[in-house]
Design a protein around this nucleic acid. Structure first.
Lengths: 192, 192
DNA sequence: TCAGCCATGTAATGGGTTACATGATTGA
DNA sequence: TCAATCATGTAACCCATTACATGGCTGA
């Protein structure tokens, strides 16, 4: 029986604790929704993963569980952060990270092998990517607008807004890159 | 016995087929190395995953396997793409993608909860991120330089180089974003 | 001379995804 | 009225990661 040399990070657990730290009791379902509108842009646990992690954080004493009977809807269990959970969250937050981020891109993977495709097919792919990047940008900017209208980005909204600016910068960068690339691909087409 | 509604994409299989399409027989070990220096920047299968997928592509008739006895090193098995494999690869390449890319960022996740940290801790995190982004940028630019010296980015190098320009753009964008953010965080510190 | 890397993989574990279930509301 | 959506989860599977093995080089 050997000890694991590297403990699993369980970042998803902490993502959940973080949402619970906002102060309200949340059910698994609530958390699924909460993730979608917030950390979901750079952290995307599956539904069932959230439920699994909830069991775990309860077993570790990081959250407590409470049954809430409901009449019209299925009964639910809501979760509350414990002081131990707050400590654990804080420790994790301060702790070091290996890779700050990693990109997983089917698009780039395919583009890497672009020589196996016709030029038009490649162009289609890049166009698709550009549209996607544009739509993400629009989405982010809409959220930015909303924040502006609801108290601005000072105070409690500050750090969520900061991550949003990252998304905006990144998306804009993707749009510009794909526009340059498209231009280059068109030019190549001119001289066959 | 239900049919799966959504077939697994198995993108990793195709990443491997793509590398095998470069024309040379490669062993699992070779592929691990090949991935590191190429698609590894946006697609990172684990070693053992590569070996697993190799078995699979052979069983599907997409590649053939050949034993190569060696004296000083462990014997190895090398793999070759079959015509069926080429077809499969081409079909996959032309096929549609849902999400062109997704970012998974522990850094952003923590930053989102920045209000739970002291400002200095946040600044430390962002500094770390900036250094990471800078180092990635330097790495990419070094590769760019190398490509320039070895025949430039026309011809067969073109698409790999294109993906590299994405990496450069993205990293540069990360550096600039973090610099802006640091400035803002410093300013906030001035008025406590 | 001995730790660490090269070279080649296999085994065990676990995180995350898709699919399965179920009943009430609501909009077209 | 009937499909979609809300609301709440569970079960099964599979992909991917970490750990385990093994023996020859090579540099300090």
């Amino acid at each position: 029986m050997k000890a694991r040399l590297k403990a699993p990070t369980r970042d998803t657990s902490f993502a959940i604790l973080g949402l619970l730290s906002m102060g309200q009791e949340l059910s698994g379902y609530d958390l699924v929704k909460a993730v979608e509108g917030s950390v979901g842009f750079f952290w995307t646990p599956a539904k069932s993963q959230i439920y699994a992690e909830l069991k775990r954080v309860v077993s570790l004493g990081w959250a407590t569980e409470r049954e809430v009977p409901q009449s019209n809807r299925p009964d639910k269990r809501v979760y509350t952060l414990t002081p131990e959970g707050q400590d654990a969250l804080h420790t994790w937050l301060k702790g070091p990270d290996e890779e700050p981020e990693d990109i997983k891109s089917v698009f780039l993977l395919k583009l890497f092998y672009g020589h196996l495709l016709d030029r038009e097919d490649v162009i289609a792919k890049v166009l698709e990517y550009r549209e996607w990047a544009r739509s993400m940008l629009a989405r982010y900017e809409a959220i930015d607008q909303l924040i502006d209208e609801h108290g601005g980005h000072e105070g409690p909204q500050f750090y969520p807004w900061v991550t949003l600016t990252y998304g905006i910068a990144h998306a804009r960068c993707g749009v510009e890159w794909s526009e340059r690339l498209l231009q280059e691909l068109e030019e190549k087409g001119g001289k066959p």
